[in-house]
C-alpha cells in the first residue's frame, strides 16, 4: 500500500470516529433529559419512588449489569484481535457479545412479563390507581429501560453486520473503522445502563 493510501485511510478512520463520537453525544443528551426528569420527580415524590422501586428485582438488575460489563470487554477485545489479524477470534468475541446482549434482553423480557402479570404497565387500571409518584416511577422505568433496550437491539444488529463484514473481508486488520464504531456504540449502551442501574434498582 502506498504512503498516500495509508495516509488517506488514517484520515478516514479519524473523521469516521469523530462523527461517531458526535452522534454518541446526541444520544447522551437524549438520555440526559430523561435523567433530569427522573431526578426532579424523585426529589418531589421520594417516598413513592422508594415504594415503587422496591418492586424491582435487584438480583436481575445486577445480573444484567454483569452481562453488559462483560460484553463491553469482549467487544473491546475483538478490536485487539482484529488489530492482531486474528479474524476468527474477533468473530468469536463479537458473537459472545451478541449472546450476552441476548441474555440481557431475555432477562428484561422476564422482568417486564412479571410486571405485566401484576398489571403494572403504562395505561393499566392498576397503575392509574397508584399514587402519583409511583405512577411516575413506573412511567420513567418503562420509558428509560425501553429506550435503552431499543439501543441494545440496534447494537446487536450493528455487531451482527460487523461479523458478516469480517467474514467478507471488508473489515480487516488494515480497515476496521466499522468494528471500532460499532464497539463505541456498544460501550454507550453500557454507559447508559451504568447510570440506570443505581437510579432504578438501588434506591434505599
Amino acid at each position: 500500500m502506498s504512503t498516500q493510501a495509508i495516509h488517506s485511510e488514517q484520515i478516514e478512520s479519524e473523521t469516521g470516529k469523530l462523527g461517531m463520537w458526535i452522534f454518541l453525544f446526541t444520544e447522551l443528551f437524549l438520555f440526559g433529559g430523561l435523567f433530569l426528569v427522573y431526578a426532579v420527580f424523585r426529589a418531589k415524590y421520594s417516598s413513592d419512588f422508594h415504594t415503587a422501586a422496591a418492586e424491582l428485582n435487584t438480583y436481575i438488575g445486577t445480573l444484567n449489569t454483569v452481562f453488559l460489563l462483560v460484553s463491553s470487554m469482549t467487544v473491546a477485545m475483538s478490536i485487539t484481535a482484529i488489530q492482531k489479524n486474528q479474524k476468527n477470534l474477533a468473530v468469536l468475541l463479537i458473537a459472545i457479545t451478541i449472546i450476552l446482549a441476548g441474555l440481557f434482553m431475555l432477562n428484561k423480557y422476564f422482568e417486564w412479563s412479571h410486571k405485566f402479570e401484576f398489571k403494572i404497565y403504562p395505561g393499566s387500571e392498576v397503575l392509574k390507581n397508584l399514587p402519583q409518584g409511583e405512577l411516575l416511577f413506573f412511567g420513567l422505568y418503562y420509558m428509560m429501560t425501553g429506550l435503552h433496550a431499543l439501543h441494545v437491539m440496534i447494537g446487536m444488529i450493528l455487531l451482527t453486520i460487523t461479523i458478516f463484514k469480517i467474514r467478507k473481508g471488508t473489515v480487516s486488520q488494515s480497515h476496521y473503522l466499522h468494528l471500532e464504531n460499532s464497539g463505541l456504540y456498544w460501550h454507550l449502551v453500557d454507559l447508559i445502563w451504568i447510570f440506570l442501574f443505581p437510579l432504578l434498582y438501588l434506591i434505599t
Binding site: 460501550h187 451504568i194 447510570f195 442501574f197
Partner: peptide, 13 residues
Amino acid sequence: ASIKVATVIINFM
C-alpha cells in the same frame, strides 16, 4: 457510577 463510566470511556472506548 461516574467512576465506572470514566473507566469504560478511558479504557474500553
